[in-house]
């Protein structure tokens, strides 16, 4: 199924599934409720990102436990794992990693199929809504748990007429692993 993944990658076991349309419609319904709760679209974007972040910090555990991957040696490896393994495992779609910045700290995850946004038409008055912002939060939350502080923003959105969904991921800090104990404890 997955070919050409990062070294050490094996096929992830498939998780139990649920109809993607139910997922899509439920997400849509949640977004509508947030819009009526907050009125201000910027607040909705922020809330979606926050919810995604909370999901990400929990989801990464399941991913690491089930995905049978080896350690990523660089941010580049990590981006490939997110695009080719984590997204397929949870959402059954994969992304391409492209548009690397020269210093290799910034790249784009490019999706053409996005189960969050099927059936969605963005009305004119909500043009500022980042409909899929939950995904930006998930990526930020999950990577934070593996010591990478990243910043995610959408630069392409098919709901606004772009050719693809493009999530720009920027590595801000790659922290060393810190252990909360000392050797002599």
């Amino acid at each position: 199924m997955l070919r050409g993944g990062p070294p050490g990658a094996r096929n992830a076991p498939s998780l139990e599934q649920i109809n993607a349309e139910v997922f899509t419609l439920t997400y849509g319904s949640i977004v509508r409720q947030l819009i009526s709760d907050f009125e201000d679209i910027e607040e909705v974007n922020k809330q979606l990102e926050q919810m995604g972040y909370n999901m990400g910090i929990r989801l990464v555990d399941e991913f690491l436990a089930k995905a049978k991957i080896t350690r990523c040696s660089s941010f580049k490896d990590t981006a490939e794992v997110v695009a080719k393994q984590a997204l397929p495992m949870f959402l059954n779609v994969s992304a391409n990693v492209a548009n690397w910045s020269p210093d290799q700290t910034e790249c784009s995850l490019i999706l053409t199929d996005n189960p969050l946004a099927d059936f969605v038409e963005l009305p004119e008055e909500h043009r500022d809504l980042k409909y899929c912002n939950v995904l930006a939060g998930v990526v930020r939350g999950a990577l934070e748990m593996v010591n990478m502080e990243v910043e995610c923003r959408w630069v392409g959105d098919m709901l606004k007429g772009d050719d693809c969904y493009e999530l720009r991921v920027k590595l801000k800090e790659h922290r060393d692993e810190k252990f909360p104990y000392k050797d002599d404890d």
Binding site: I18, A20, F23
Partner: peptide
């Protein structure tokens, strides 16, 4: 032919919304 997503993805979203 309807595509699927993992139940986990749904569960994370659902529990996060309940939390909200």
């Amino acid at each position: 032919e309807v595509p699927t997503v993992s139940l986990s993805a749904f569960a994370y979203l659902f529990s996060e919304y309940i939390q909200y």
